[in-house]
Nucleic acid binder design. Structure first.
Lengths: 257, 257
DNA sequence: TATATATTCTGTCATTTTGACGAAATAAAT
DNA sequence: ATTTATTTCGTCAAAATGACAGAATATATA
């Protein structure tokens, strides 16, 4: 598991895999926006993706799950490894600045600081149902907040790049897997899922053609209930068909929007 | 960069990133078979994927390129990162056996053996034009050979799994990128590329529909030359249109076979 | 109570793409 | 000249796609 805390335990190389971090781009969907859960360490004015290190007793995937759990309070989230980043320059220069800030604040950096040495980051993205997330602030964080991917704050290291690549991976995967399931509440309306796909893909999709295609997969099922949205026609609620959904996850489908 | 040699330099943690290996599944196509380039270390009776470690002065991608170069003698190959493997069990148990073999042979394992500690492997696949490859045997290898992916020998660690995942990634990618280019000679015939796609995807593809679709992308271009194949009609030669090919690599296409 | 407003929802049609076929053309061997 | 093995070209019905418009509904307000 791992937090981003600068707990001394983190630097214990008996426990953690050296030189290897796991970064997890946690996506949520709210107010017609795709958002990522970011944290801002104390003292610094840049934000980071949720991240941590790998215990020598766990797998890479378990580490990613634990990172997601520590930030959202949710287990068994949909989580996908998309790329591993590693270069001599991706963190090193910035660590010099960080250490100065620490020194000015009277803090001394850890002696076993392999963390600022060459760092490989195994990057995942995680999909969450926004409303279920209870944001968990870690002790070393000043803040942890949802940010729209369209308007990100100043990011630390290469984390802006990591988010960019995560979004690309998500855009690629959404054509092959009915991923919307993971970002939406259990019951949702057609306009909602339509808008979600438009947001993720960053383009308009004809609503008639979109629903025609989505329904033809048999993955979503109309319910008898409707949702009241005020002074407008009440849209029907739908839910995902678990069986079909799992089959689509396994075998893949193609949604050529 | 890195070889799989047990050169002492490899254990120098000043030079190499600890706990992180790069494994590279090198694909080639020959005799209507998809093959992978494997090596067999001396003393052991199992085979491994081409692999090595990362110099602290290079990026992960550079390391992968160097591994490919050391085995094939070729630079700038098409190379794709597809997954990073890491778990407490993936190498540890087998290292115990390996050390026994070493001990029996009167060799003593390196003292700085972080190599047999927790190991993360960043896996790539590489596509090569079979006939251009000049296989390069490393000093610690007893053999290095092409093996058909359909009939692999006994593999070390989780390398059978890594190859399996590489093939899955290749099968996925071939639908989106005109990857055949990298596995075929500069000039090729329609039956050749047809057979290549059938081999990779592991299913028969109607030749008429296949060529219709492939030609419609504008990625390959008919030449005036033909190839003599003995007592049969001489098939025309084709080549890839560099410009269209690059555009397809960048933007992606969809070949729904 | 009627009307206006904003949103959901359903349907058509021409065009394109797909999938499933068979037959003609060609190169060398007999 | 005939046979054999392979390449190459063509058709056609069915399905999928893309572009487009109008009816239905829930509330607000006139």
């Amino acid at each position: 598991m791992g937090t981003n805390d600068l707990d001394t335990a983190y630097f214990d190389e008996q426990l953690y895999v050296r030189n290897v971090a796991v970064d997890n781009v946690i996506f949520g969907y709210h107010d017609r926006e795709l958002k990522v859960l970011l944290q801002k360490p104390k003292l610094l004015d840049k934000w980071t993706v949720a991240g941590g290190y790998i215990l020598k007793t766990e797998s890479v995937e378990e580490a990613a799950h634990n990172i997601a759990f520590m930030r959202t309070g949710l287990k068994d989230l949909f989580l996908e490894q998309f790329k591993t980043f590693g270069s001599p320059t991706r963190i090193k220069d910035e660590w010099l600045d960080i250490e100065k800030v620490f020194a000015n604040a009277g803090l001394n950096p850890p002696t076993e600081a392999w963390i600022r040495d060459y760092s490989v980051s195994i990057a995942f993205y995680t999909l969450t149902e926004f409303s279920l997330v209870t944001v968990q602030k870690a002790s070393f964080d000043e803040a942890i907040e949802w940010w729209p991917v369209a308007q990100l704050p100043k990011m630390m290291f290469d984390h802006a790049l990591i988010i960019e690549e995560a979004l690309k991976a998500l855009q690629r995967d959404i054509y092959h897997y009915p991923i919307g399931y993971e970002l939406l509440p259990r019951k949702f309306t057609l306009p909602e899922i339509h808008s979600l796909y438009e947001t993720i893909l960053g383009k308009t999709l004809d609503n008639r053609n979109f629903t025609r295609k989505l329904l033809s997969t048999g993955i979503i099922k109309k319910l008898d209930e409707t949702r009241n949205i005020g002074a407008h026609r009440s849209p029907f609620l739908y839910k995902f068909e678990k069986k079909r959904y799992d089959a689509a996850l396994k075998d893949g489908i193609f949604l050529g929007f």
